[in-house]
Design a protein around this nucleic acid. Structure first.
Length: 210
DNA sequence: CTGCCGATCGCCT
DNA sequence: GGCGATCGGCAGC
């Protein structure tokens, strides 16, 4: 693992997204290892929040890479993206799912709250809103710099990108490209039990590296 | 495992 | 007025 730097995030989002698989995201003593992400390519991508140009909500996406974009979903959940791409691209990678590898107790305080039974360990961060809940990410952290070593969010990426990466349609994206044939920009680690269950796509494997 | 449904709100038409 | 980059509970196989 190595600390991500600005250059890592500043490459085209479709290049960065699969390389974030296996990355470690740490917030407040909880660490999640990413197993599933989705790429959103900015103003040229009908599925992206940035498609219709900047709004107060999406302002962070239009800034430099290496910042956190957090948005409020369905009136009750938070979802978090890592802003990626060269200046002006408004690209972002949605963190869809991961494995809690550190701080399970603290993640459980938030995930088990109000529930009769503990959440199965693999479900702690299995889904974009579950992942933010486990990490304690909310709109309060929208726009934070991911590269400040004294900041609230730390990102470490693998020295070597994952060799085996599956791709498929993005989840919950409809309209042009919604069938995934035009924008098969969901990336996950095949065989990982923490990959999110909703509308699971048929896996199509591809080698990212020889 | 799958499918249906309600919760709840910001942004769109 | 409608629809999400969602989730949890419940029913049914």
């Amino acid at each position: 693992m190595r600390a991500a730097d600005r250059a890592f995030f500043s490459r085209p989002v479709l290049e960065v997204a699969p390389e974030l698989l296996g990355a470690l995201i740490s917030v407040g003593g909880v660490t999640v290892r990413l197993t599933e992400v989705e790429a959103y390519a900015g103003t040229r991508d009908p599925g992206s929040h940035a498609f219709r140009g900047p709004t107060p909500r999406t302002a962070v996406m239009f800034g430099p890479a290496g910042y956190l974009y957090v948005y409020f979903s369905y009136g009750m959940h938070w979802c978090a993206n890592l802003v990626c791409g060269p200046d002006g691209e408004a690209g972002a990678v949605l963190m869809r799912a991961g494995e809690v590898v550190h701080g399970e107790d603290r993640a459980r305080e938030r995930r088990d709250a109000g529930r009769a039974r503990p959440v199965p360990v693999r479900d702690l961060a299995r889904g974009p809103a579950r992942l933010t809940a486990s990490l304690g990410l909310t709109g309060a952290l929208d726009g934070v710099d991911l590269l400040r070593t004294d900041g609230p969010v730390r990102v470490e990426v693998p020295e070597q990108p994952a060799r085996d990466v599956a791709t498929g349609p993005r989840v919950g994206v409809s309209g042009p490209g919604g069938d995934g044939t035009t924008y098969p920009w969901r990336f996950w680690l095949p065989g990982e039990p923490t990959v999110s269950p909703y509308r699971a796509a048929v896996a199509r494997r591809r080698a990212t590296r020889a």
